[in-house]
Simulated assay, not measured.
Amino acid sequence: MNAFVARSLDEIRFWSRIMKEHSLFLRLGFRSEDTQLIQEANGFYSLFEQIEAKSHAFSAATAPEQIRAFNVEVHQAASHIWVFKRTVLGLILTCKLPGANNFPLLVDHVSREANYFRNRLSELNNGQLEPLADAIIDENVFFLKIMADHAKFIGHLLDPSERKLVDQAREFSHDFDQLLWQAQDLSSMRPQSQTQPLLSQFLDQNRVSVASLRDFKKTARDLIEACRVKSIIHPLLADHVYREAERFLAIIDMFENCLTGKTAANQNAWH
């Protein structure tokens, strides 16, 4: 199995679906008169739906050159949706979309994920993945912020009368803000902080909180799908944030295996 091909396809299959769903969520938040923005969002939905389907037509046996070209194609699409998202954010922050229902933090959030996606494709194509210790810190800083945002979105999109669930979401928001600040502190202490014991404890602590948030998201998703909770959360959004928590947990486990020697890792290919 070619590791470059397998990793590229894994990233594209996961993130192209995420980008496709972002297009839907943004469209749902636009006003009926925002016809140009709605049309652009629909175009991105179709584009990433095609990319997602194409990624499943490839396999680990596909020639690396073919996947490298595919990565360039997807990188371009990710760059275009990033520009669209930042444009929408600018319109919201300058009060040019009054009455629309996309939170500025949500639009910033989805743009950060598009930027992460395109950067990962560039790293894979250039063969310049970060060394393990740097990757552990940087990936956790990125995903802890994503998880903290998710908790805030859930708390704001649940009906205010769902007091218990709203309180739980706020507790998760606080927990992940604390974890994010700790991760940023560990980052600023580099390279002295990059010892095996500190990185291992870092991963262990984050895993516990991410697993708890993942379970909360699963419960919320199931309640929303069964129409047992009052909210304005789209069922697909509930599943979307659950899948991202699952992704983060898989990355934490992969890092732990690399750190403890259970999985072969070198300076240029930590995953």
Rank of each mutant, 00 (worst) to 15 (best):
M1C: 12
M1Q: 14
M1K: 14
N2Q: 02
A3W: 05
A3V: 08
F4M: 13
F4S: 08
V5K: 07
V5Y: 06
R7T: 10
L9F: 10
D10I: 00
F14W: 04
W15G: 09
M19W: 01
M19A: 14
K20A: 10
H22R: 04
F25K: 11
L26G: 04
G29V: 03
G29H: 01
Q39C: 06
G43S: 05
S46T: 08
F48M: 09
E49F: 07
E52K: 11
A53K: 13
A53P: 00
H56Y: 13
F58K: 02
S59P: 00
T62Q: 08
T62F: 10
A63N: 13
A63C: 08
I67H: 07
I67F: 12
F70G: 09
N71H: 00
E73A: 15
V74S: 08
V74H: 02
H75G: 15
H75D: 09
A77R: 05
S79R: 00
H80T: 02
I81E: 12
V83A: 15
F84K: 03
T87K: 14
T87A: 15
L89D: 07
L93E: 13
A100Q: 15
A100I: 01
L106F: 15
V107A: 05
V107S: 04
D108K: 03
V110C: 13
E113A: 09
E113F: 08
E113Q: 12
N115L: 13
F117T: 07
N119V: 04
N119H: 08
R120H: 08
S122Q: 10
E123N: 07
G127W: 05
L129F: 08
E130S: 13
L132V: 06
I136Y: 11
I137A: 10
F142W: 11
L144P: 06
K145C: 04
A148M: 11
A151W: 01
A151Q: 03
A151T: 02
F153P: 03
I154S: 09
H156N: 15
H156R: 12
D159F: 00
L165K: 08
L165W: 11
L165Y: 11
D167G: 03
S173R: 05
D175K: 12
D175E: 12
Q178W: 01
L179C: 09
L180V: 04
L180P: 00
L180W: 10
A183K: 01
Q184I: 07
T195Y: 08
P197C: 13
L198T: 07
S200P: 00
F202Y: 15
L203V: 02
L203T: 02
L203H: 05
D204F: 09
D204N: 05
V210F: 06
V210W: 04
A211T: 06
S212Y: 11
L213G: 11
D215F: 06
F216M: 06
K217I: 06
K218D: 09
A220I: 15
R221Q: 13
D222F: 05
D222W: 05
C227A: 12
R228H: 07
V229C: 06
S231Y: 03
I233D: 07
I233E: 10
P235Y: 12
L237D: 05
A238W: 03
D239I: 00
V241L: 15
Y242N: 09
Y242E: 15
R243G: 05
E244M: 03
E244N: 02
E246K: 14
F248P: 01
I251G: 02
D253T: 00
D253I: 00
T260Y: 00
T260L: 13
A264V: 04
A264M: 09
A265G: 04
A269D: 14
A269E: 06
H271I: 11
